[in-house]
């Protein structure tokens, strides 16, 4: 009985979600044209597709954040098992930190630490 109730609830929500998804397209008689999908450039059209890579300025900061934050995330559980695991844990952490350091060194070369 409980299972039937769950199935009914699931089907109801699934059907509801489908209806909500389809309703706007039924009401909107005019689909978006290709010119409406591109960014507004004062009448000009973009030379390249939106998937073109471009420079995001916060990229280097993100790299640095991941390098330091991942380190700490791994260090907490590591500290718990360090006493029981011993040298093996120390070697693993050493390797992990070495890999992260490569990222930090790369960032350093690219000028992350220069204050602007």
């Amino acid at each position: 009985m409980a299972l039937t109730g769950l199935v009914i609830i699931f089907i109801t929500f699934f059907a509801g979600a489908l209806i909500v998804q389809k309703l706007p397209t039924r009401a909107d008689h005019h689909q978006l044209a290709e010119s409406q999908k591109v960014p507004f450039l004062g009448g000009s059209s973009p030379n390249t597709h939106a998937w073109q890579r471009y420079h995001i300025r916060y990229y280097s900061m993100t790299l640095l954040f991941i390098a330091f934050e991942m380190e700490m995330m791994f260090m907490y559980p590591w500290a718990v098992v360090y006493v029981t695991e011993g040298v093996k844990a120390l070697a693993e952490m050493g390797m992990f930190l070495a890999i992260l350091t490569v990222g930090i060194l790369y960032g350093w070369r690219e000028g992350i630490f220069r204050w602007q």
Partner: peptide, 25 residues
């Protein structure tokens, strides 16, 4: 696409975005 000139601000040599802008904005 790679930048035609070195970046003047932070030395990062990343991609450029080239587009036309105007005439009615």
């Amino acid at each position: 696409p790679m930048p035609p000139t070195p970046d003047i601000r932070d030395g990062l040599a990343l991609d450029v975005y080239r587009t036309q802008v105007g005439p009615f904005m």
